[in-house]
Design a protein around this nucleic acid. Sequence first.
DNA 1: TCTGGAAGTTACAGACCGGTAACACCCTAG
DNA 2: CTAGGGTGTTACCGGTCTGTAACTTCCAGA
Lengths: 196, 196
Amino acid sequence: MTDGIVERSRPRDRILETARDMFHKHGIKGVGVDAITEAAGTNKMTLYRHFESKDELIVECLRANAAKAGAMWDAFEAEFPGDKLAQLHAWVRKAAAMLNADGRGCDMANAAAELTEPDHPARLVIKELKEAQRERLVTLCRDAGIGQAELLADTLSLLLEGARVSVQTVGSEGPSTQFVRMAEGLIVSFRGAAAG
Amino acid sequence: MTDGIVERSRPRDRILETARDMFHKHGIKGVGVDAITEAAGTNKMTLYRHFESKDELIVECLRANAAKAGAMWDAFEAEFPGDKLAQLHAWVRKAAAMLNADGRGCDMANAAAELTEPDHPARLVIKELKEAQRERLVTLCRDAGIGQAELLADTLSLLLEGARVSVQTVGSEGPSTQFVRMAEGLIVSFRGAAAG
DNA sequence: TCTGGAAGTTACAGACCGGTAACACCCTAG
DNA sequence: CTAGGGTGTTACCGGTCTGTAACTTCCAGA
C-alpha cells in the first residue's frame, strides 16, 4: 500500500524506482520480484524482459542510488561554486538531515550485510561505488585546503557510516545525535592543523 | 562444510552455537532452520522443541552474542584492574583486532539491516543490548576521568560501527584503517580537556 | 529391569521464491 | 490499414522456506 510509485512512465523505469524504494524499506531478501512488479503496476514477465535476473536488478538499483548521491554532490558545487569548505559543511548538514529522515541506513551497507556470498555481483559494485565516494570526499577535503585530507575524509566516512547504523539499531536518539558536533569539530580541528 | 560445530553437548547448546556462527557468516535470512540443525548434528523437530520459532532462536543468538561481548569487557577489567584508561585503550585495540579478523560487521547491526519489520522481536532486544553497551562505554570513559564522557563514548561508538560496515563494503584496506589512529587521538584529546 | 522423557526420523502442509512458456493484447510507426 | 514490438495475462516448474504430526529409538534414573 505504501509502496505505490506507479506514475505512468516506461515499465523499466517504474520497476527500477519501485525496486529501489522497496529494497530500501524492506531489505533485498525481504522483497520478492512479484511484490515489486505488482507495486510498479506491471508484471513479472516484463521485469525479466528488462533485467536478466533479480541480482542484475539489485545491481542496477545500487547504481541508481549512487547516481542520486552523485547528483547531491553536484548540487553542493552548484550552491557554493568554488567554495570547497562550504561544500564540505553542506555535506555534513545534508548527511545529518538524511540521518533523521528515515531509520534505514545506507542501502549499500545494508546490501553488503544481506548479500554474504563473496562473489555476488552486487558486492563488486558496492566496493566500486563506495571507493568512488571515498575518492570524492578525499578530493573535496584536499581542495578545501586540509592537510591530512585522507585522514579527515576517512574519519568523516566512519562517523557517518556509524551514525547510519546507530540510527538503525537504537534510533535517532542514540550516539548518532553527536554526528554533526563531532564532524564539525573535526573539520575545524583539521583546518587549524592545515599549515602542518 | 565449514559450518560444523558438532561437539557432543546438549542439542540446545549445539543449535544455539551453530546458529550464531551461521547467522554471522551468512546472514539471518540466508540460513534456514534445516541447515542449522543439520550443521548442529540434530534435526528440525529438536530445534522446535527448544525454541518456539526461528525468531526466538534469533533473539537468543543475539543475547548470547551480547553475553560474549560482556565477557570481553570483564576480561579488560581483569587484565587492568582499576585502571580504567588502560581498559579503554584495550577496548580500542580489541575492537581493531576484531575488525580485521573477519569481514562481517556487527551481528546486531546486520540483523537490524535484515529484519525490517518494525515490531520484530529482535529489534527490541537489539535496541536494549546496544543501549546497554553504550551505557557501559560511557561509564568506562567517565571512570577514566574524561570530562565529556558521553561525547567521547558516542564518538568512539560511531567510529567503530562505521569501521565495521566499511570493512564489510570495501574491505579492510579502506577507511577502517584509520580507526585506531582516530580513536587513540580522540582519547588523548579528550583527556587533555578533562580538567574543563 | 523397567519406565519416562528427550532426541531422532520421516513425511508432510502451505506458502513463497526466482524464473519461464505460451499466448492475447494494444499502440504506434510505416 | 497493417505489421510488429512492447506489454499484459495465466499457468506452470522446481526449489526452498517455516512449522507440524506421528512414530521410533535411545538412554538415564529409579
